[in-house]
């Protein structure tokens, strides 16, 4: 009996452990990258990979929570775009304006999250559709506030966060992400909200009967996601240096991919931020390798899609559970 139980835990455990396989995958990618480009693992190149992956991971943090709850948030990209454009507009290159910018971003995030959640809960609209609709509205608002061409510039403090290098491969952004990851790790383990979030995602009926205020949990989750999206926009502005329209557009599907590669289930109830970080690294690595191979864009996209498909098929396989 005891032997059997150990068997089940240790042997397939490693191969079904998404974190482990993710790390192996990243190592393989590094090696492959090295064969394509000798400078692939130079400090400068690594720093670049880590920083880009960190930005993606920041954008995907909210997505992780939303997917755990059993939904999906397609409005994150528009929050990033809005966050970048709006904060440049408000900061006007001065540190003194940062509090106002943060206030506007948080309030916008709050509104976006509440609208998303209310549409999903009370109008019973599918999360994908509801958040896409809100995303379109927010994109237009982004255009309206800057009359179609972004003005203003980032405050020096934000530029410092976005570009400062601590040590050779460790940028400020990566450092911030590590702090956030530690915070989230303990938060997910020790916080009532996290336990309720997982429960809601895993079995909504049971959550309701167990006394959880399901609607409250969902509203909070979408609010967190939208606020984090807006703040990521500010960070992205710090990294890129100047705002442009639809800056965050490419992050939309990438956040979903990062979370799913990270081992979360679209059915909800499963997922963790460490997995999402690994997922972000995998995605950024993949795109860097494809750039290094110097193929034309169409072939690049096809390979990108195929590799992602392979990763998802082999990597998110479930260990059979007893029913």
């Amino acid at each position: 009996m005891k032997f059997k139980a150990m068997d089940k835990k240790t042997i397939p455990g490693v191969f079904h452990n998404n974190t482990f396989i993710g790390l192996v995958l990243i190592a393989v990618m590094f090696l492959f990258g090295l064969t394509v480009n000798h400078n692939f693992l130079s400090p400068k190149s690594l720093e670049n990979i880590f920083t880009n992956a960190s930005l993606l991971a920041f954008a995907s943090l909210g997505q992780t929570l939303v997917i755990i709850s059993g939904g999906v948030d397609m409005s994150i990209a528009s929050c990033i775009s809005f966050g970048a454009v709006a904060s440049a507009l408000i900061m006007k290159g001065s540190n003194a304006n940062i509090p106002q910018a943060l206030l506007v971003l948080v309030i916008t995030g709050l509104l976006v999250g509440v609208v998303n959640a209310l549409g999903i809960i009370y109008a019973n609209i599918a999360p994908l559709v509801m958040t896409l609709a809100v995303s379109n509205v927010l994109n237009v608002i982004q255009l309206i506030i800057c009359n179609g061409s972004p003005t203003g510039s980032l405050a020096p403090a934000v530029g410092f966060l976005g570009k400062y290098k601590l040590v050779s491969v460790l940028s400020m952004i990566t450092f911030l992400l590590i702090i956030a990851a530690i915070f989230v790790y303990f938060g997910l383990k020790h916080n009532n909200y996290a336990k309720q979030l997982f429960a809601v995602g895993n079995n909504r009926n049971a959550a309701l009967l167990a006394g959880i205020n399901v609607n409250k949990v969902i509203v909070i989750t979408y609010i967190i996601s939208a606020i984090l999206g807006c703040l990521t926009g500010m960070l992205l502005l710090g990294y890129v240096n100047f705002p442009y329209i639809n800056m965050g557009a490419s992050y939309g599907m990438l956040t979903v991919a990062a979370v799913v590669i990270g081992g979360a289930s679209f059915a909800g109830g499963k997922g963790n931020f460490l997995g999402t970080i690994i997922g972000s690294l995998v995605l950024v690595n993949l795109s860097n390798i494809l750039v290094a191979i110097q193929l034309n864009d169409a072939v690049k996209n096809v390979i990108n899609g195929l590799v992602l498909l392979m990763i998802l098929v082999f990597y998110t396989r479930e260990k059979a559970i007893r029913q």
Partner: peptide
């Protein structure tokens, strides 16, 4: 459909109502 959080740990299953 109405009781167990199958993917969550035994501890979480026991503690969830108190959390709620």
């Amino acid at each position: 459909s109405e009781g167990i959080f199958a993917d969550r740990s035994i501890f979480e299953n026991i503690n969830i109502s108190r959390s709620a």
